[in-house]
Amino acid sequence: MTSDIILFLIQDGIANGAIYALLGLAIVLVFAVTRIIMVPQGIFISYAALSLSWLESNLVPPTAWLLLALGLLTAGIECWQARRRPRAMRAPLVKYVVLPAALLGLCWLLAPQDLPQMARMALALALVVPFGPIMYRLAFQPVAGASPLVLLLISVAVFIALTSLGLVIFGPEGVRTAPIATASFTLGVLDLSAQSLWVVGMTALLMVLLYLFFGRTIAGKALHATAVNRIGAKLVGIETNAAGGLAFTLAAAIGALSGILISPITTIYYDTGFLMGLKGFIAAIIGGLLSYPLTVISALVIGIIESFSSFSASLYKEVIVFSLILPVLLLRSLGRRDIGEDEQ
């Protein structure tokens, strides 16, 4: 292995690791606020990439219909619960029916047009992000106080349901979408594609935005506070269910953006997101489902190890990557500390 190959593999690993870092951050964020291990995180990758591909083919993505169907179901539940307070029905109807219907209408109108790629990406993002809060409202909010094990089982069930639905609505074919930019640059021996730079750049930008959100804004601090002490959060008037919904919205946005960024580089199938999400999950576990910086560093290391494994022992690359979790779990079990318990 020459130094050129090493540099090339590191470059490749960082581009993939950046995506795992984003997914890992989303998993830590959701766990911190809700105690839910976000098994379906990868779904957003597949749904966003496949929706974008349908838009590129001038077709209305099936996610628009699925979103409306799930929105109607959610609105039905909300309205039933608010049946004695008709005024309380207005907000869920707007959020879960009017908005998805408007998005479907927009797709009908815009999909046949030759839109700029950025506009298609924005539309794909707008279609997939609302799945986050709807997923939380339908599957998790009714059992928000349940144990992490129950929440994990529900999370697995949601993942299976949405993956199966993905197969039904998108079919089994894989897609690659058009890149945001096709240019490439030469840096010494490295040939950097503009798309890879987009991936790394957007990841870095998102991380800075997340840091500023949690560190500098009251909404971010409120989300953090909900993670630290749910009862304390209620006592200062933070709507903890809304905090869960916001965490899922952010996770869906991060997942969907990852899908849009990675789909020009990797072929995406209805279930590809799962494997990527799992690598993000390993990074999150190494970060103790608690530390954002450690999660990012772990994700980059995972990306680089995967890249080297693909070169040296491609058949075993997944085995090598997933085996990373074993020594980490062993080490963490030795210095066991219950993660996320209130330290009262």
């Binding site: 601090k221 630290v228 009862i231 959060a233 006592l235 330290e343 009262q344």
Partner: peptide, 10 residues
């Protein structure tokens, strides 16, 4: 509250 319910890591 009796247990104060502070945000201990903040």
């Amino acid at each position: 509250a009796e247990k104060r319910e502070l945000f201990t890591t903040m």
